[in-house]
């Protein structure tokens, strides 16, 4: 049962890579946006908030199709990237990472925003009176104190990225070795006669990855909060 075939390995490795890249690229953006939403008032804030959450409520196939229209070779951004930088996202693993990153984005922003809101603003004021300009207040006080939320968001985002299916398959299809992640591999296998065992193996693998992520995040969160509260 546990003879994992090379194709399956490829799908597993690709999933991990896609999810890791998606999470690592999305995290700084999510932190910046979460800070903006938590600490600043500006015109159009609720619209921006809604926009960030859109991938959560849109059918994933719609998000995927919009990505294809925008980042496809003939899409507005896609053509520009391809002509000027030689970057092609459609039907590539990098495109899968983009799709996963966008789908995971609201799940990253939410816990980070909540944890930034929970940081006592009076500590930030105190840092200011000690001579710290706003960006250093953010780096030395706000971000470290919000770290448990950032880690929670990263784990949630990573798990979402690993499991993403609809937007990914619409945008980058299901090409073994290039864009076939665990999810799309399972999808292909259950459409194939005799694919059941292989599909089951990948199901077990995805359960293991999800469990590891949850246990890992729990451990990180406990360590981080211990470090913060200094007991």
């Amino acid at each position: 049962m546990f003879d994992i075939s090379p194709t399956e390995w490829t799908a597993i490795q690709l999933s991990l890579r896609v999810a890791a890249v998606a999470t690592l690229v999305a995290t700084p953006l999510a932190v910046a946006l979460a800070w903006l939403l938590a600490r600043r008032e500006f015109w159009g804030k609720s619209l921006l908030d809604a926009l960030v959450h859109l991938p959560l409520v849109l059918p994933p196939v719609v998000t995927g199709y919009l990505l294809l229209l925008t980042f496809g070779r003939r899409g507005l951004v896609g053509a520009f990237l391809a002509d000027h930088f030689g970057i092609v996202l459609a039907f590539r693993w990098t495109g899968a990472a983009l799709a996963c990153g966008i789908m995971a984005f609201p799940l990253l922003v939410r816990p980070i925003r909540l944890s930034i809101e929970a940081v006592d603003h009076r500590l930030e004021q105190a840092a200011g009176t000690l001579g710290a300009p706003p960006w250093r207040v953010f780096l030395t006080i706000t971000l470290p104190l919000a770290m448990p939320g950032v880690l929670a968001g990263m784990v949630l985002g990573f798990a979402k990225a690993i499991g993403e299916f609809g937007a990914t398959i619409t945008f980058v299809s299901n090409i073994p070795g290039e864009t076939q992640t665990i999810s799309s591999a399972i999808y292909s296998l259950i459409q194939t006669p005799d694919g059941d065992r292989a599909a089951l193996r990948l199901v077990v693998v995805s359960i293991v990855i999800a469990l590891a992520a949850l246990v890992g995040s729990e451990w990180f969160a406990r360590r981080a909060s211990k470090r913060l509260h200094g007991n």
Binding site: R122, A127, P144, L145, R227, L228
Partner: peptide
């Protein structure tokens, strides 16, 4: 009044 030491 409330010291506001940085807890981390």
């Amino acid at each position: 009044q409330d010291a506001r030491l940085f807890p981390h």
